[in-house]
């Protein structure tokens, strides 16, 4: 088994390709090297994006459902918060390894692990978002004859959207960062270019890979923000 588990020392990545050879040999910051090798980062970037989107998607679906459930069955809040925050505490690298005996190597442990980390953030925001819906909204909704489900989906959830999406934003930013460690699960991503001794000292590589991770976090954050504005037009309507 262990033969398959050895992390490729450099991810099959040969540093010495193009650019200014002496600059590369000195671990320098070499614009020409970056220009020559940028194309080799697209695949890791896409892998990274894929990991984030899929795991946050799955994680959101689960945490959102758990949140709705616990909003009804309030006794579930404490145990679910306890379990999800304990899981969140486990270092991601450890998590990615601890999942491997069950899930093998590759995308499976990475996605499961990342989805686990989104739980506490999204769950908590769903619960507080729903709890912060003003009492008179709930009262008015029931008083006009909405059933519990109608009230939940027509009034409570829409009013909790800002808080829920705030949770989603944090989850996305966190997941982009944690997905950098998904390389330990054998799932690729930009982390692949950073967790190798011969690459982490190479400034050109770090600038590209580290920069891409950071920019990806920022870009996805903006995307969720835009989505939030789209979903809550009423929040922009200020007293005319």
């Amino acid at each position: 088994m262990s033969a398959a588990l050895v992390i490729a020392q450099s991810g099959g990545f040969v540093r010495e390709r193009g650019g200014d050879a002496s600059c590369v040999a000195n671990d320098g910051f070499c614009p020409t090297w970056i220009a020559d090798n940028l194309d080799r980062y697209w695949t890791p970037l896409l892998e990274h994006l894929y990991l984030v989107v899929v795991s946050v998607g799955i994680g959101f679906a689960i945490a959102f459902s758990l949140g709705l459930l616990a909003h009804r069955q309030r006794w579930l809040i404490a145990p679910l918060t306890g379990v999800t925050s304990a899981l969140y505490t486990i270092p991601s690298i450890a998590m990615f390894f601890l999942l491997q005996p069950l899930l093998g190597r590759g995308n499976a442990p990475a996605i499961v692990g990342l989805a686990i980390y989104t739980q506490v953030i999204i769950f908590r925001n769903v619960i507080t978002g729903l709890a912060n819906v003003p009492g008179e909204m709930v009262d008015a909704a029931s008083g006009m004859g909405m059933t519990k489900n109608q009230r939940l989906f027509r009034v409570e959830v829409p009013l909790a959207v800002p808080e829920i999406l705030a949770g989603l934003r944090i989850a996305v930013a966190t997941t982009v960062g944690l997905a950098a460690f998904a390389a330990f699960a054998g799932a690729g991503g930009l982390g692949q270019k950073l967790i190798v001794a011969s690459l982490i000292t190479f400034k050109s590589n770090v600038v590209v890979a580290g920069g891409m991770v950071t920019l990806l976090a920022a870009a996805l954050d903006l995307a969720v923000l835009g989505f939030q504005r789209l979903l809550t037009p009423w929040r922009r309507a200020v007293a005319a």
Partner: peptide, 19 residues
């Protein structure tokens, strides 16, 4: 602090300030 991934921070430190 939340937006910049921790691996990126470490990587920048190691690459630019040394091990």
């Amino acid at each position: 602090g939340r937006a910049v991934p921790s691996l990126a921070i470490i990587a920048f430190f190691v690459a630019f300030l040394g091990t």
